Amino acid sequence: MAKTDYWMADGYGNKALVEGAAERDRWKPLGWAETTEPEPGDMVWMEHPETGGRQRFAAAVIEQWQGLGWHPAAPPEPVDVLHDSQLVDQAAPVASAVVPKSTDRTAASGTTPKES
């Protein structure tokens, strides 16, 4: 049994084509919703199976890019910035303690100032 394709939109004018109800349902909690086919002004996620490239294209040029091997696809996987091992917070460098030099010459010479 063939899976059904679903057009999804993210609310920012970006559309993507996902395969199967399970994939459609996986993207819904991530802010994507079922929608209609792309219209002028929409951007469409496409991928090239030979290169693995994934890019957004204007809906008006989908046919031209399909001739070059690109096809509508799902958006790239989301990045979880709190748990991605490549985006781990780095500790801030530790600054060395700076001891200011005394500008009081009497303290440096060991003498006391004269009283007036």
Rank of each mutant, 00 (worst) to 15 (best):
G41S: 00
G41E: 00
V44W: 08
M46H: 08
E37V: 14
K28D: 07
D42N: 10
Y12D: 06
R24W: 07
Y12M: 07
G20C: 11
D25Y: 12
R24V: 02
D42F: 05
E19H: 09
M43G: 05
L17Q: 11
E23D: 11
E50Y: 10
E34C: 11
E39Q: 11
E34F: 00
L30V: 02
N14H: 14
L17M: 11
E23G: 00
W27Y: 09
L30A: 06
R26N: 10
H48E: 07
M43D: 14
G20L: 03
R24L: 04
L17P: 05
G11Y: 06
D25G: 04
T35K: 04
K15C: 07
E47C: 01
G20H: 02
M46Y: 05
E23P: 00
T36L: 10
P38W: 11
M43C: 13
K28S: 10
M46T: 06
G11H: 09
G13D: 04
M43A: 13
A22E: 12
N14G: 07
E19Q: 15
E19D: 09
N14F: 12
D25S: 13
E37M: 13
V18Y: 01
P49C: 10
P40Q: 00
R24C: 05
E34I: 06
E19G: 06
W32F: 08
D10C: 10
E50Q: 14
D25C: 04
L17S: 02
M43Y: 11
G41Y: 02
E50T: 14
A16I: 11
G31K: 14
A16E: 12
G11M: 08
W27C: 01
